[in-house]
Each structure stands twice: as structure tokens, then as C-alpha cells.
Write a protein that binds this DNA or RNA. Sequence first.
DNA 1: GTAATTGCAAACGGTTTGCGATCTC
DNA 2: GAGATCGCAAACCGTTTGCAATTAC
Lengths: 126, 126
Amino acid sequence: MRRDTKQREAILKLLNNTRSHPTADQIYDEVRADIPNISKGTVYRNLQVLENDGAITVIGINGAQSRYEIKQNSHYHFRCEKCGGVIDLDEPADKGIDKKIATRTGFTVSHHRTEFYGLCKDCQQK
Amino acid sequence: MRRDTKQREAILKLLNNTRSHPTADQIYDEVRADIPNISKGTVYRNLQVLENDGAITVIGINGAQSRYEIKQNSHYHFRCEKCGGVIDLDEPADKGIDKKIATRTGFTVSHHRTEFYGLCKDCQQK
DNA sequence: GTAATTGCAAACGGTTTGCGATCTC
DNA sequence: GAGATCGCAAACCGTTTGCAATTAC
């Protein structure tokens, strides 16, 4: 049975209050302000539990560190190639394309992920 | 200046003759048939050089090993969630969407990546 | 009470890197 | 001969895991 620990709550609360798509390390650093002796193992384990429960989503298809966000409607991300920042896009996920691929290939398609790459506004000016 | 070594040629040749999107480890294993004492460091260094030169493309998915393919026209990939296999899709990359995002956000958008997830034909039957 | 969760530290796996030797141009 | 590349082994870094102690229910 799933339990309610202050560690898990702190991680969820943090993710609920940010749009910055933090890495596990950033989460660890921030949560330590409240719970100084929390361990990284606990952070990783909780992120796994929360993902399995569908409470959060793991972002990233480019092999870098994983980033985490609260589960929300399916949407795309933009990744700045200079500063590494990840930004939510309004563009809604195109669900029709999954069916199109499924029909064409005979595969079962559950979902897709798209990430855009380029320079964010700040980084264009430097 | 870039040199032409048998190690680099063997890696390129292997990638030219496969559609299997091998991992660095698989490349290492296969190339060792020809060059028994090639090292993993050399494989990784060459894959980096070849990527920088635009000769190959890295397919990176969070949490999984990187896979490599010969550079070709922009296209999407399907990853089977059961066997882990990566398959090229015919679906051409939608270039219009990059401009759409750029206009909407003010970001510079160089490209995007899309990956589909589900079950390939073989894995559906098991 | 018992099973989930924790902190700690060690292990893991893919990838990178420092080195002195070797090879390509 | 200069500089790129090599093989080797150690280091790196994000993540996972084993364990005994603690905690939620």
C-alpha cells in the first residue's frame, strides 16, 4: 500500500509549484532546504513511484539528464541548445498521427513524444 | 585535420550496411570481428567525430543507450516498448511545424524530434 | 505489527578522458 | 615531423540497489 511520507509530499509540492522541469539533482537540492538529511536515493525512488502512479511525467528524448514535471495534458517541449532550459509549448499533441502510423505499420502505437530544439529568446541575444 | 583510419572506416562501413540502429556496444562487438583489439574508447571517440562531421545521427532516448545511424533525410522513429527495438518510419518530418512554433514563441527553432512508442508486430503476438 | 519507506554507501552501466605509444598525412 | 588517433585503464556521473533502521497505517 502506498504511504504518505513528508519526503514524498515535499517532492510533489515542489513540482506542483514550478514550471522549470527540474532534474533529480535540482529536486534533491531544493527539497534539502526543508528536509536536510533526505537522500538522493529517496528522491529517485519517489520519482519512480510517482511516475508509476501517473502523478508526474519524465521528460526527454535526447539522452541528457531526465527532467520531471507534474502530469498534465499531453504537450510538447522546447529545449534551448545553449542554456539547456526546457520550456512547455502550447502546441497540443497531435493524436491523429498515432493512428496514422499504426495503420501504416501494423504496430500498436500508444503515444509519441516530440521535442523542439533551437535558441530561446534570451540566448538569441547573446 | 581529419584522418582516415581503419577503425573509423570500419565503423562507418558497418553503419552503412545496417538498418538496425546499433548501440555503441553493438558496434564495438561487430567491429571487433575485423579489428580484434579496437577499444571502446575509440568507438565512442569516432562516433563523436562522425556526428560532428554530420556523417551520422545519434538517436537518444532518455534512460536508454544511445543508438547510431547513417545521416539521412529527417525521419521519425518507432521504439517497441517490449523488445526495445528501434525502427525507421516512412512518415516524413513535418517541417512546417518548426516555423509555426518559431512564430508563436519567438524562439529560433532548428529542428524537432519525434519518437513513437508501442508494440512492434512481433511483440504484439506474444 | 507489518510492510512501505528511509538514509547511507556501495555498486552499476554507459560514456568520457588522461596517458604515452602509434599512425596518417 | 606534427598532430590526429590509438589502446588501455581509470575516472565520471546519473541512477539504482542492498541493508538495517525507521515510519505510516
